[in-house]
């Protein structure tokens, strides 16, 4: 993690987000109605939701930390731990399993040198399993950031990953 990111972890939320949250809360029947969208916006800005940001968001919405963290930890697409710049999500549901997702997973993990749930040391990729992406007709399906891939065969992995690495540079 870079120094900037570490600093951001201790910091409070930036003013524009605070204003947005106050505005969102005012438009809800109960301020806590804005909780999920607020958490999504925090993640969009910082990649994940750290304790300080969660606490600050809870304060704005008039919720206890426990209450808001209950929501944050319930959703598998809200991250309470740091993730890489690219979150790779490989479907592990039935269709993809039948179509060889396990082999794809093995290849993916070997390519990145991490296990499922881990982040590459350079902070570029985090690999996570996910349930059905609704892309069964192209199984095995994989989501990287907002890009959907499929069918992803083991031999496609190198190309996809190298492509993303190249794109970033």
């Amino acid at each position: 993690m870079s120094t900037a990111e570490l600093t951001a972890q201790d910091a409070e939320l930036p003013k524009d987000l605070v204003d947005t949250f106050i505005d969102m809360a005012a438009h809800e029947h109960h301020p806590r109605g804005a909780a999920i969208e607020a958490l999504r916006l925090v993640q969009e800005r910082f990649g994940w939701i750290n304790d300080a940001h969660l606490a600050h968001t809870a304060r704005i919405l008039g919720m206890s930390q426990a209450d808001l963290d209950g929501i944050a930890t319930y959703f598998n697409l809200l991250f309470r731990k740091p993730v890489g710049k690219n979150v790779v999500m490989l479907c592990d549901s039935v269709s993809c399993y039948i179509m060889g997702a396990e082999q794809t997973r093995e290849r993916l993990c070997r390519k990145l040198g991490v296990k499922m749930g881990e982040t590459t040391p350079d902070g570029e990729f985090t690999v996570l399993p996910i349930v059905c992406l609704g892309h069964c007709d192209h199984a095995p399906a994989m989501l990287v950031g907002k890009d959907l891939f499929g069918p992803v065969r083991p031999e496609d992995i190198d190309g996809i990953i190298d492509d993303i690495r190249a794109r970033k540079k």
Binding site: S64, D69, G70, Y74
Partner: peptide, 9 residues
Amino acid sequence: GQDLGVFAS
């Protein structure tokens, strides 16, 4: 009470 919660799924 406010400080007991339920987390994850």
